Amino acid sequence: MKLAYIVALAAGLAAVAPASAETLLRIGYPGTGLDDRPFGYGDYIAIGHVKQLVEAEFKDQPDVKVTWTFFRGAGPALNESLAAGQLDFAAGLGDLPAIVGRSRGLATEFLASAGSHDPLYLAVPPNSSIHSVEDLRDHKVAQFRGTNLQIATDRVLEAHGLSEKNIRFVSLDSNAATAALVSGNVDASFGGSEYLDLAKHGVVKIIYSTKNDNPTLGRNSGLYVTADFEKAHPDYTAKVVEAFVKAAHFGADEANRQDVFEIWAKSGLPAESFATDFKDERLAHRLSPVVDDYIVARYKDQAERAKAYGLIKKDVDIDSWFNTKYLKQALTDQKLEHYWPTFDAKGQKLTDGEVEQTRAATN
């Protein structure tokens, strides 16, 4: 009787238990679209999300479930989630928050560049007396503190003879900064392509862009995996990188220019803003997964500046952070080893890449 009960109980438990253990593959993205829409923009990560390319890599593995979380609090909020063990991948995480996280012991590995040469725009009210970066002295300026926007802004100020001590900064996220600028609660705001549509309609005026300045200015971001996940699931990590390289390839192809802008428009920003943002610029210039001398130099420089500015307390080992074996394999598998242009540490182009050579041959 007792044996029969145990057998029956075991059979019942087997009936309700899952056939196989589910593996969650948790991706975090540092930002949202307008009105907190769960869509990114401006990078190939957002393309991979909309086209569900990561999910496609696991179509034959129903036990793997891919989840995405979009953080309105950007990099700092994503770092908190990483520290709490709630994410496996940080996709598109900006350089400063990633460096801060590493300095505080977050065990991540840098898999690929997720964006580079991302320009910074300085927006002011249309009737403002501010006409240059130098004119910002003693004014109230919105800045998303703790994100890659902060250290990028600091570098712009430094290049124009100013520092944070000369500015009255107000820490606001992108949506709040835009509202504060339009309402007149701040005198200026540093940001990205979110200001271009407002400028088109005369709501704000763009008075400066890093696109016309030193090529090492601007913002950079990366694709990261937690060390624990990579160690436990190297095969899954490889698939994720394969997916995002496919996204980058799609995004870098000029034949897909309008499609890319329409994908980003799911964020709530109009496609026309991205057309303006990328005017006279090739998509491949920014949408590249390649870790070249430029990327390595930028992260080393940003780490040094973060310490000098008091944003971190100790040196950060950058060289050991890069784990590009998965990227190299994905590029080889997809025959894209020489597809993207590469740049030296000072931001000067070293090679055009096959994407540029193909364009030149067809012109």
Rank of each mutant, 00 (worst) to 15 (best):
A19S: 07
T67F: 00
D118H: 13
P76M: 07
L24P: 10
Y195C: 01
Y236T: 06
L93Q: 13
E337A: 11
G75P: 04
L122D: 05
V100T: 02
K279E: 15
I6T: 08
A107Y: 04
E337N: 13
T351H: 13
A303C: 03
L93P: 02
A248L: 02
F110C: 10
L331F: 04
A252Y: 03
E262P: 10
Q357C: 11
P234N: 03
S129Y: 10
A199S: 13
F58W: 12
A361V: 13
D88A: 05
F190A: 08
S221K: 01
L331A: 00
L87A: 08
L196Y: 04
I45K: 02
A77V: 08
K51H: 06
T210Q: 00
V170R: 00
L331S: 02
K335H: 15
D352T: 13
G33W: 08
P38D: 12
V66T: 10
V240K: 00
I206L: 05
V203A: 10
A188S: 02
Q86P: 05
D187T: 05
V225N: 00
T276N: 11
V355L: 04
A74M: 09
D63R: 02
D35M: 11
G73Q: 01
G146C: 06
T276P: 06
A107F: 02
V133T: 01
V296H: 05
R282V: 12
